[in-house]
């Protein structure tokens, strides 16, 4: 199958007060008609990758092709084939929904009559028909995000880029957005989406790459990633500091993953949730340890990072976008282990 997107060893460094290496040799391929997820925390380089692929930004080195066209050398051709919707909901709030869609259609050089029909169609499809003639100031966050996506679709792009399409949305709006994205893929559109949520990548993406500090640290299908992480995480909270080490050794005996300690919480990834949990309870009881909390949960992105890199995602790292503009700190990562790309699901 031909690739819709081919990224080879792309590097990008932002100079400024503090030099930020946003992309440090990133490579990935996206097959036509599939959804590809770029998963990573704030500041990992996701937005920078999208901005390069959508011709907004030039890479320092490496090559990026969209439908076989070089994004730097054939920028106008690429622009005519892609759509971009982002976390910043780039729509004009002084215009109505319909005026926004019309503007984008006209800037794509589509005929007026076609644009009018397409705008109507999209407003209906995105459940905005009733509010199409109201200015965006009256829209809710979810409505803006839907209109932003509709604007990206006016010219029926072959490849669609969605930069954190659901960040900041409430659960209901997020679900609506997921359904819209799924229906697009049914129509054959290739989608590249960035997300901070493992759940979102799991639900939408056929394949994904995990980015950390501008490097791809894992790639594969969501199922492979999850099986690599273990099905569930067992979390034991303790009252007494003295119990922490003993609890860790009890949980370590369950295997095959090593437990992690943070404060008075010990957590371990387990492959067989309920059975392992019962075993853990029995062993804790025998050891005379009474936990204050005992939880089984789905692995989070944080767990994925811990499993893949040995470090947690860095909170308070600033928005991806601001880091890309050089004002947010991508963090000092001296002493962190250099992580090579490993296929998820391998090496077990």
């Amino acid at each position: 199958m031909p690739y819709a997107i081919e990224v080879t060893d792309v590097k990008k460094t932002f100079s400024g007060k503090q030099e930020v290496r946003a992309l440090d040799g990133v490579s990935f391929n996206v097959e036509e008609g599939t959804v590809f997820g770029l998963l990573g925390p704030n500041g990992s380089g996701k937005t920078t990758a999208v901005r390069i692929l959508t011709t907004i930004l030039n890479a320092d080195s490496g090559s990026a092709l969209v439908l076989g066209h070089d994004v730097a050398k054939q920028a106008d051709l690429v622009r005519s084939l892609i759509g971009l919707a982002g976390q910043y909901a780039a729509v004009d709030e002084n215009l109505t929904g319909r005026e926004n869609l019309t503007m984008v259609g006209r800037l794509n050089h589509l005929p007026k009559s076609y644009v009018a029909g397409r705008a109507k169609e999209l407003l209906e499809q995105f459940d905005l028909a009733d509010s199409g003639n109201r200015t965006l100031k009256t829209y809710s966050g979810g409505m803006r995000r839907r209109l932003d996506l509709a604007a990206a679709l006016v010219a029926r792009p072959t490849v669609l880029f969605l930069d954190e399409p659901t960040t900041g949305l409430d659960p209901q709006s997020r679900n609506d957005m997921w359904e819209v994205i799924e229906s697009l893929v049914g129509e054959g559109t290739t989608v590249l989406l960035t997300t901070q949520y493992l759940e979102e990548a799991d639900r939408l993406a056929n394949t994904l790459s995990v980015l950390d500090h501008g490097r791809v640290i894992a790639e594969g299908t969501p199922a492979q990633l999850k099986s690599d992480l273990g099905a569930t995480v067992l979390e034991v909270g303790l009252h007494d500091n003295d119990d922490v080490a003993r609890t860790a050794s009890v949980l370590n005996a369950i295997g095959p993953h090593a437990p992690n300690i943070s404060g008075r919480v010990v957590e371990v990834t387990v492959d067989n949730g309920p059975v392992d949990a019962m075993e853990a309870l029995r062993s804790l009881d025998q050891a005379g340890i009474t936990p204050t909390t005992f939880t089984l949960r789905e692995p989070s992105l944080d767990d994925a990072f811990l499993a893949l890199t040995g470090h947690r995602t860095e909170d308070g790292d600033g928005e991806d976008g601001s880091a890309a503009k050089g004002s947010g700190g991508a963090g000092d990562r001296a002493g962190q282990p250099e992580s090579a790309t490993v296929p998820v699901g391998g090496n077990r």
């Binding site: 959508t54 011709t55 729509v91 984008v104």
Partner: peptide, 17 residues
Amino acid sequence: QKGLIERFRALPMARSA
């Protein structure tokens, strides 16, 4: 600031427009 320029820059429109 609002990201509109980002959208414009990803469109096949004239850079001067």
